[in-house]
Design a binder for these strands. Structure first.
Lengths: 344, 344
DNA sequence: TTGTACGCGTTATCAA
DNA sequence: TTGATAACGCGTACAA
């Protein structure tokens, strides 16, 4: 029983299994990849040898020979907070159902890093890529095209975009919320946004607010903006900044829920009552927005559905099946306690 | 300029670069891997060809030939909440400083899935692995040993463990908190814990509470336990369950902060005032525990330091350098508003 | 149904 | 310092 192991102390290869089962390596390979091409009897013999030797195929060799990895890569801006977690989870689940594994990388919101990650994932043989947002150096898109790697863009939606997309309309979603805010009587609006450079989601959301103000005849100059990196603490600092300005806003609209709960916490600390003294809104409808106190008015984004659809689209593209290449995910307003009517 | 591309429309290889630069593939390879072994003049010539062709090395082929990937894998139980995010971020940063890339997989707290992920990462050529907790089928440890893949275990600490470890003592940390709780006069203790099966962290934490009770002469039977999966909503449901029992606890100790903030939110909903009617404690000291209202008393875990030390240890092991193989990370009590003295 | 033999894109050894 | 050339482990025509 132990005798065979004495040969060497390295990890077994296809050839080892073939020797053990007294067949050719080709047969072993077929047993593993297309079992129905090999007759029952040899198959069991081979599988027995596989089990006995504890053989596991070498992924790299396989990828090299087959030019396919059954792997899809995703690059998200951050793993530090929950913004992308839910959508990515659903994305992964759907891939799993298809026997595809997910490789995740995070770019820390830095486009330079993102390009590096893209090249890394491609050189690792990812069959396709999920990317967040359109904004990207044209050169990298050209690189992907030349490499023949299918890409789906998520978390944004532009019907005219050249790339397959599964996402929502950041502009309209935020504009709808801003319209609501204005209808409630607010005129002095403050904004806490994530960095807008290289980030079309935050840029579009901000544009949505501006557009709603213009429509309502509120001069754009009255908008006070604090730009910061995403984070709870950062949201708090930004709020403090906004509230220390001469003309205090009556509402602070945040680029996402993480910033918003940070703002709410800081407001409490400063003795500002929400929503009596100040209204606050978020974006995303993460779980924390429900348990925040007061609970957070926000834009609900069906992240799980977005992740699932994106996975399906990519799977289709890899197997060159036809299908939609643009899916719009509808968002909705989630009215909770943190936004109230403005009354002087 | 364009002429060379007409040859083929596939991604350029070493050989293409070699042809273009009129050198051998070996030289090109050396230019990329050990540039000082090749003379300045040829090097610039080669790099020029690389740039012109947009050459990117094929990772799989490289791994196959070099038997090394400069990649370390990590398998964490979940990406859905922040429990592991902070530590993993620091882990990745430290790896990056060493030119090592991180491959993450999540097991959804299922040991079967985790084994699969381990095999996947190994077959992908991960040079080493970071795993959470000791509890694991001996067979998988044997597999790892035979494959010669170094492993570091984190988030736990047992001085007698056979494996290199960077972590904290879940038992003692939770016991310290329980001692504090008891010293404040609490006798009827409720617990909301994550699943204890296959999870040594939650098991140890629970054992810590039991031990503190025993030390204080509180009968173990008075402990009421709700076991659930980690999640904000789940924490709420568990709290409701505990509070609907005949003998209501005066304090609910939660297995982590996520469960705790869920419990707090639900308590509010039920009109239970915290900490007047009920005290609540957490574990981890995530960012939400500070902004929770009332703020959450919890155990502070220096996640970032743990991640960083784990990375260093693994890097050392891969390069076969000597070094510590057991690092204890100290935790501390973080007293905040949600835990108060018990007074009938 | 099974086996032979070549190719995948690198790295590494050994000569030159 | 550079160039041939043999691995690396697997998939897959093609032949048997």
């Amino acid at each position: 029983m132990e005798a065979d192991e004495s040969k060497r102390d390295r990890t077994p290869t296809l050839a080892d299994v073939a020797r053990q089962a007294k067949v050719s390596t080709a047969t072993v390979s077929r047993c593993l990849n297309s079992p129905d091409q090999v007759v029952e009897k040899t198959r069991t013999k081979v599988l027995e040898a596989v089990r006995k030797l504890g053989y596991a195929p070498n992924f790299n060799a396989r990828a090299l020979a087959a030019k396919r990895t059954n792997t899809i890569g995703a690059i998200i801006p951050t793993m530090e907070n929950a913004i992308f977690a839910r959508g990515l989870q659903a994305f992964q689940e759907e891939l799993g159902r298809n026997g595809t594994t997910l490789l995740v990388a995070s770019s820390s919101y830095q486009s330079g890093l993102e390009e590096e990650q893209i090249r890394t994932l491609v050189s690792r043989g990812a069959d396709a890529l999920l990317l967040i947002g359109y904004h990207r150096d044209p050169e990298i898109y050209e690189f992907l095209r030349r490499q023949g790697v299918p890409v789906v863009i998520a978390w944004v939606f532009d019907p005219k975009a050249k790339f397959p997309t599964v996402g929502f309309d950041n502009f309209s979603a935020m504009k709808a919320l801003a319209n609501k805010v204005i209808r409630l009587g607010h005129r002095r609006i403050g904004v806490i946004t994530g960095a807008t450079q290289d980030n079309d989601r935050s840029t579009e959301r901000l544009r949505g607010i501006r557009s709603a103000m213009t429509d309502a005849g509120i001069p754009e100059e009255t908008l006070s903006i604090a730009e910061t990196t995403y984070g709870i603490a950062e949201g708090g600092i930004a709020l403090e900044h906004l509230m220390s300005q001469p003309s205090r806003p009556s509402v602070v609209m945040c680029g996402n829920d993480v910033l918003a709960v940070g703002a709410i916490a800081k407001a409490k600390e400063l003795g500002i009552d929400i929503p009596r003294d100040l209204s606050v809104t978020g974006f995303d409808d993460l779980e924390i927005s429900k348990i925040s106190s007061p609970s957070l008015t926000t834009v609900h984004v069906p992240h799980r559905r977005m992740g699932k659809e994106a996975a399906r689209m990519l799977i289709n593209m890899v197997s060159k099946k036809e299908g939609q290449d643009k899916i719009l995910i509808e968002t909705s307003l989630e009215m909770r306690e943190s936004l109230a009517e403005y009354s002087e």
